[in-house]
Each structure stands twice: as C-alpha cells, then as structure tokens.
Amino acid sequence: MDGMQNQGGTTPDEDSWEVAGQRFRSRLIVGTGRYKSLEETGEAIAASGAEIVTVAVRRVNLSDPGAPMLQDFVDPKTYTYLPNTAGCHTAQDAVRTLRLAREAGGWNLVKLEVLGPPPFLYPDMPATFEAAEALIKDGFQVMVYCADDPLAAKRLEEMGCVAVMPLGAPIGSGLGLTNPFMLRSIIQNAKVPVLVDAGIGTASEAAQAMELGCDAVLLNSAIAHAREPVRMARAMKAAVEAGRHAYLAGRMPRNYSADASSPMSGLIK
C-alpha cells in the first residue's frame, strides 16, 4: 500500500461536518435527559463518542442548591452544550428560554423546538418560524427542530438557521424513520446541515438516517431507555459511522431478480 492514495474517498479520520463555523467529527448528537442517574448520563455520553450534547434549561431547586449538577458529570469543556427549548409551546417561551441559556452558558449555538400539544408534540411550524426569526435577529445560531416538510425546511434555511432538524418520528416514540422519502428530499435540497432529530429507536434506524445522507443524527431516548444505555450508546456510535460509510460508499442497485455472486464457470460435472 506504500505510496498509494486513499482510493475510497473520505477516511474515517478525515470525515467531519461543520455547523455554525465549528467542525465536528462525531455525527451523533445525544441528549442528556431521561437517564437513571447523572453517573449513567456521563458514562453513556462518553460511550457514544458524541461531541455535542443537548441540555435543557430549568429553574434551579432552591431547596437543594448543592445538588449534583449535570456539568459535574458532562463537562462543558469537553462537550459542546446545545441548549434546547424542550417544553416550550410558544415562540415567546422559546426565545425567553434561549436568552437565559445564552446567559448561563455564554454561547449562541442553540436548538430551537416549539412543540404542539401532546400526544404527538409535533413541531409547531408557525410558532417555530416566529421564534427562529426573533432568535436570528438577536444573534443566535439556530439549529431548528422541524416537521418533515421540505418547504418548511427550506424556509428555515433561507431565514438563516444554521441547521435544519426534521423529525424521524415523534419525540421519544422510538418509531424510527416514518417518512424516509421526505427526509431524503429535505437532505437533497438543503444547503445547511440536515440532522434527523427524534424518533430513532435503535441502531439500524440511526444507520438508515445516515444512509439517507443526513449530516448527523440527534437522539436521546433510544440510548437512555435501552435496557443497557451504555451498550446502546456504543451501538449508536457504530451505527452512525456504518451508515455514513455506507452513504459515502454508495449502495448497489436493487434488482428484482437474483444475480449469482459465484462464477458460473468451472462447475463440476
């Protein structure tokens, strides 16, 4: 192999993606919620190889100010914290939450999600547009959770969102990619990174999202609610890498008849 150039395109070491001017090698973003303990959160996130983690913004517990904090287990110096607006059902609440997040963390890169009512918590797109506009005007770099709607995704991109993040399926549902065709069309039309966010339930679904050509996937419950979260975190890391390689390698065409892999010549008679 001496002197040979890499013929297979991007090597794992070179493969990376960029959002808001920051370059990342891991294409897996993980949430930090729903774990049994902060210890388990820290272990699972380390096993996932993620470089970006989503975090929520909530009131401090005044009666127990010394309680262990997420930062003690998931070091903000090691991981890029991506504050979210989970639980926000209006544009105003989302903007208010992220202004507080910016003050708490000191950075502008955020995840916007404005959700409709239970039981689906489907992205509320009119409210999402309104919040995105206010946040962009206020200097935020907005990664935005959105419907699997190519027109909505394009509009968010044109408004100046730094990444669009259509859902695979409702948050926490673990149903996988319910609309791969629309995800694919969003990816093909986008000029900003596209991340599949929400709905992934197991490793093969993360790989499928990467095979569609998305830049990264964002998931939380699939790891946190697995029987062994740390092992599932490893599985997700491998799946995202496998899916990315498969996408770059280019799958073979589908044939509706057999095409033997072994030569037909030299058969014994």
Partner: peptide
C-alpha cells in the same frame, strides 16, 4: 447579565427566574 449582578438592586414585588442546565433531549 452576570456582570451586573452586584449593581442590580432588588425591589419589592420583583419576580425572578433563576435557571441552570439540566439533562434534556
């Protein structure tokens, strides 16, 4: 802003929200 904590006096009837980061998806 953090830089204004010392200079910001509290007044009767103020409503404050004090938040931090916690685990979330």
């Amino acid at each position: 802003p953090r830089s204004a904590y010392a200079a910001t006096a509290l007044a009767a009837g103020d409503t404050l929200e004090i938040v931090h980061f916690i685990g979330g998806g």
